[in-house]
Write a protein that binds this DNA or RNA. Structure first.
Length: 321
DNA sequence: AGTTGTGTTGAAGA
DNA sequence: ATCTTCAACACAAC
């Protein structure tokens, strides 16, 4: 599940490995994941998937022979600036990741040739988009659930796309001060877990790192954000930076399908604090880690370390029949 | 073998 | 307006 650290890992890889390359052509078996907003007459506010063959033909035409200038990250979005004033935005959503290697199309399906990580690892085998580069290699999107999207747009209009425009400040943006963070948290609800997962509040945090940030700051996931003390908010702010930076250093988490562009797993998997550790002893007090549902998402936490000092919302949990 | 859990995010429903 | 549920899709685990 690519969150900020996983997306940053990919962006760093792209700047190191494909910057300066030219895109020769495109292959895809799921054109509905692709949109070309740089084509004439296309409105940026049109959010629907476009299954028309014209949309994909425009994309193929508009990306052909463009040079990759640089890669950037905003929240969980990968922005690849191209020559000709175009930018390719890729959002990996839940199961998407970018790979650099070589594939051959056999009977309409891509077959990995190298490196061995692509050939051996089944999670690298769901190829739905291939960009052919001018050095004989390919940049490919593997995406088991086909939720990821690739959008081509004019570089100047990238910040007008709803994907970017509706985002809150990036979680690692240096200009996101403690004061600004505190103001955002105070405006949000209903629980702190749900608040951390809102891209329009703070961009880049998903289920893995929200769990670890709350554990690191001794805050219960059901806490009402409006009732957090300044000390708790300060702890959360520091934990957010610490946890995310550490995960970037370790090249992300691969509890599920995430891989870097070489097809390799991230090492934060072994450094997780609580995410996906239900039943395992807390690393601080040995209490078994608990998992509950918060707003339809799972939240893992230590019931002792993160025990609320006050009531959450004064409400009891609803039972579902 | 059918059901459930998985996670991102926008749309639809309450 | 604010919150919850669902839908996009595919697979593993039960």
């Amino acid at each position: 599940m690519p969150e900020l650290p996983e997306v940053q890992t990919v962006v760093d890889d792209l700047n190191r490995r494909v910057k300066g390359r030219k895109i020769l052509r495109v292959w895809s078996d799921t054109p509905k994941q692709i949109r070309d907003y740089s084509a004439p007459g296309r409105r940026l506010t049109d959010l629907h998937r476009d299954e028309s063959s014209k949309n994909f033909r425009n994309f193929q035409k508009d990306i052909k022979n463009k040079k990759i200038l640089r890669a950037k990250r905003i929240g969980k979005n990968i922005l690849i600036d191209l020559s000709g004033g175009k930018t390719l935005l890729i959002h990996q959503k839940m199961t998407g990741h970018l790979l650099l290697g070589e594939w051959a199309i056999k009977k309409g399906r891509p077959v990995a040739i190298k490196p061995k990580e692509m050939v051996k690892d089944p999670y690298n085998g769901f190829i739905h988009l291939i960009l052919y580069l001018d050095n004989g290699k390919q940049l490919a999107l593997s995406d088991l659930r086909k939720f990821a999207k690739a959008i081509l747009a004019d570089t100047k209009k990238i910040h007008d796309l709803p994907d970017i425009k509706n985002l809150g400040p990036d979680a690692l943006d240096p200009s996101l001060t403690l004061k600004k963070f505190a103001n955002l948290i105070k405006k949000s609800g209903p629980t702190i877990k749900q608040a951390l997962l809102k891209p329009e509040l703070v961009a880049g945090i998903g289920n893995i790192y929200s769990d670890d940030i709350l554990y690191q700051s001794f805050v219960h996931p059901l806490q009402n954000p409006k009732k957090l003390t300044p000390e708790e908010i300060s702890k959360m702010y520091k934990a957010m930076r610490q946890v995310l930076k550490k995960a970037v250093r370790l090249r992300g988490t691969s509890t599920s399908d995430f891989r870097d562009t070489a097809g390799k797993e991230g090492r934060y998997t072994n450094h997780r604090l609580v995410y996906g550790r239900e039943g395992e002893p807390c690393q601080r007090c040995q209490t078994p880690i608990k998992r509950i549902k918060v707003g339809g998402r799972s939240a893992s936490f230590c019931p002792k370390c993160q025990a609320p000092k006050r009531t959450y919302n004064g409400k009891k949990k609803k039972k579902r029949n």
